[in-house]
């Protein structure tokens, strides 16, 4: 079991540091944002599983030949109100760390999801009271403000896309179609679920800089995915102009009486990357490589589970 634990720990370290950095620096995600999103989710999930697995297997090693037997022995003893024979301080530390970290991550995900839901509901209340429905576009509402904004509020029952009067003034009708298509894609592809998960990961691990980078990168990838849906409705150049107009229009207009609202986004290159891939589309990855990346992502999640289960199967 200690060998499995060491392997899992090595995998956890690799997924926590070098692998995400390679992915952040790679050029291909701009060509295949959907594929990159799969890889990010796989890294996050496998990283957490292998870290928890490494702690658990190391902690339970004294109690049995493999994880299931050792876990059962440990649970039986603790349920009876005593520590199992052979308990050591490092073993207890490993088991407690795994349980606490697991609970911390799960609790944070639940907390973040519930809070996001509450904020959305409050914002939706505001939107429904202050906006008017746009007759031409379904589930789209117009808010009377000079600042050009467009966003969607994903909801469990119904989703709403919000456009501002400033945006309609700024953009041509075709550009507005591009923006509306982009927002509909966010809703249709349930991007909010991925974003909440990565946000929870970042909040749960504040001392872990890669979680920050991962959240930024995943946020950008879902924008690219939504852009790709909008490109089916309008030419690439139209979408690029819309992005540029909204990005720079926000600076020029801001919100009356609200200087804070002009705070630029933290990641200043994200809009430029979105526009660049529309103007000069990067070459897509060869199909064989794409298949390899998908296989690798699946393996990343499956391998830690196999490493844990294998000793049990082999006896």
């Amino acid at each position: 079991m200690l060998a499995a634990s060491a392997l899992l720990a090595a995998l956890a370290v690799a997924l926590a540091w070098p692998v995400p950095l390679v992915l952040v620096r790679a050029a291909w995600p701009d060509a295949s944002p959907g594929l990159a999103l799969v890889v990010w989710q796989s890294i996050a999930l496998a990283g957490v599983l292998s870290l928890l697995g490494a702690l658990l297997t190391a902690g339970l090693a004294p109690f049995g030949p493999h994880l299931l037997a050792a876990g059962a022995a440990f649970a039986r003893a603790t349920a009876a109100g005593r520590l199992p024979s052979g308990t050591t301080v490092p073993a207890l530390f490993g088991v407690s760390a795994a349980v606490l970290l697991g609970a911390h991550l799960a609790g944070n995900l639940a907390f973040t999801a519930v809070r996001a839901q509450r904020q959305r509901q409050r914002h939706l209340d505001l939107v429904l009271l202050l906006s008017t429905p746009l007759p031409d576009l379904p589930a789209t509402r117009l808010i009377d403000s000079p600042a050009p904004v467009a966003y969607c509020l994903p909801g469990t029952a119904k989703s709403v896309t919000v456009l501002s009067a400033g945006l309609l003034d700024l953009l041509s009708p075709q550009e507005v179609d591009a923006v509306a298509g982009h927002e509909r894609a966010h809703v249709a592809q349930h991007h909010n679920l991925v974003l909440v998960a990565f946000r929870a990961w970042r909040i749960a691990l504040p001392w872990f800089p890669v979680a920050n980078r991962a959240q930024d990168e995943v946020g950008l990838l879902v924008e690219m995915l939504a852009d790709d849906q909008a490109r089916r409705l309008v030419p690439d150049a139209v979408l690029a102009r819309a992005i540029e107009a909204v990005a720079s229009g926000g600076v020029a207009t801001g919100v009356p009486g609200d200087p804070d609202a002009r705070t630029p986004s933290a990641d200043a290159t994200s809009v430029a990357r979105r526009v660049a891939r529309l103007i000069a589309p990067p070459a897509p990855l060869p199909a064989a490589i794409r298949r390899l990346v998908v296989l690798g992502s699946v393996a990343l999640v499956v391998v830690p589970a196999v490493l844990l289960a294998l000793p049990a199967v082999l006896g």
Partner: peptide, 16 residues
């Protein structure tokens, strides 16, 4: 930000 998915986050002057 988690609650909303904006079309574009605001750009700074350099980015513009």
């Amino acid at each position: 930000q988690a609650a909303l998915a904006r079309f574009v986050t605001l750009a700074g002057p350099d980015e513009t």
